[in-house]
Amino acid sequence: MPLHVPPAPAPALRTVLTALGSPTAVREARTPSLRMAQGPVTPELPLPVHVLDRITPAGASATRLAGWRFLIRCGERAVAAADTMLTPDGWAFSRFFEGPYITATEHALRQAETMQQSYQARLLSVPELYMLTLWLHGDCAADGATGHPVATDLLVPLAPAPPGIAAHRPHRVAELLPVLTHRVTPAPTPAPLMSSPA
């Protein structure tokens, strides 16, 4: 089934195109792959990046939109990514970067294309676990910038995933959220030991 990529806000895309057209922005990006790219580079596959701020006692997730991420393609592969963020003045370019999440995102998107059900692609970041997942939302017509993971959505942890969580294995939100809740909940402080009377 086709994977739906929600349309990014036009001003966010413009900021990335402007940054790509600026030799100074590219040179200062500290992304060797982007600086050494041979041929034209294009921003593709815009994905809204949501951050999991907390998990409520009832097990619901509180998420917020952090920005939009574009994969920067040169030829047949993505060589970097560009992040944008919403500011009081509108959408702004944030940064170029590269690393393992670029390849992992491409891999997870190819995996999702082979699934039987259609999904809308998003990214969900879990900062407390240094974890990024491809969030496959079941409502393909939804506004990609809003909403929360629902029990039947899928989360695909991207490599490198935290220890004990398999990368690139799709998990239903209802299955993975309790694991994440357990990981991000601080352990209770043990009661002090009572000293025995002398």
Score class of each variant (00 low, 15 high):
T105C: 00
L13Y: 06
T18Q: 15
L52M: 15
T15W: 08
E98F: 05
V16G: 08
G99H: 14
R77Y: 05
W91Y: 12
L86S: 13
L13K: 14
A108I: 04
E44N: 02
A25G: 03
D53T: 12
C74E: 09
R95G: 01
P40Q: 11
W68G: 02
P11F: 01
A25P: 10
F93L: 08
A19P: 06
R30K: 14
A37F: 04
L52N: 11
L13V: 11
T103F: 00
T63H: 01
R73C: 00
R69F: 00
S33G: 06
A19V: 12
R35W: 04
V49E: 14
R69I: 10
R69D: 00
R110Q: 10
P32C: 02
F97M: 10
L109H: 04
A25L: 13
A12W: 04
T31P: 03
P43T: 10
P40D: 02
A81V: 06
H107M: 09
F70S: 06
T63N: 00
M85D: 06
S22E: 03
A19R: 03
R35F: 00
R35Q: 04
L71D: 07
A104M: 05
E98T: 11
R27L: 09
T42G: 00
G99Q: 11
I72Q: 01
D89Y: 10
P88W: 03
W91T: 07
R30D: 12
P43V: 07
R77A: 07
G21A: 10
S61I: 04
T15S: 11
E76I: 11
L13R: 14
P48D: 00
W68C: 00
P46L: 13
E76H: 15
S33C: 07
L109V: 09
C74W: 08
T87L: 11
M36V: 06
R110V: 11
G75E: 01
T15M: 11
L47F: 07
W68N: 10
R73P: 00
T63W: 03
A104N: 12
R30T: 14
R35A: 04
T103N: 05
M36K: 13
E76P: 12
E106R: 00
S33M: 12
A62E: 15
E76F: 15
G59Q: 11
A25R: 13
A25F: 10
L86M: 14
L20E: 08
P48H: 01
L34T: 05
P11K: 03
A78H: 15
T24I: 10
R27E: 06
E44L: 00
R69W: 00
P9G: 03
F96R: 15
L65K: 15
R110P: 04
A10V: 02
I102R: 03
R77M: 02
E28H: 07
A82C: 10
A12Y: 01
A108Q: 12
A80E: 02
A62P: 13
A66S: 13
A92Q: 15
P100G: 07
A25T: 10
V41E: 03
E98D: 15
A62N: 13
G75N: 07
M85P: 06
S33L: 04
T31A: 03
S61N: 08
L47M: 09
R95V: 11
R69K: 15
Y101G: 02
G39W: 04
V49F: 05
V16D: 01
R73W: 01
P23F: 08
E98M: 09
G59L: 11
G67H: 12
E106I: 01
T42R: 08
P32K: 05
R35D: 02
A29Q: 06
F70M: 05
R14E: 03
E76Q: 15
Y101E: 07
E76R: 15
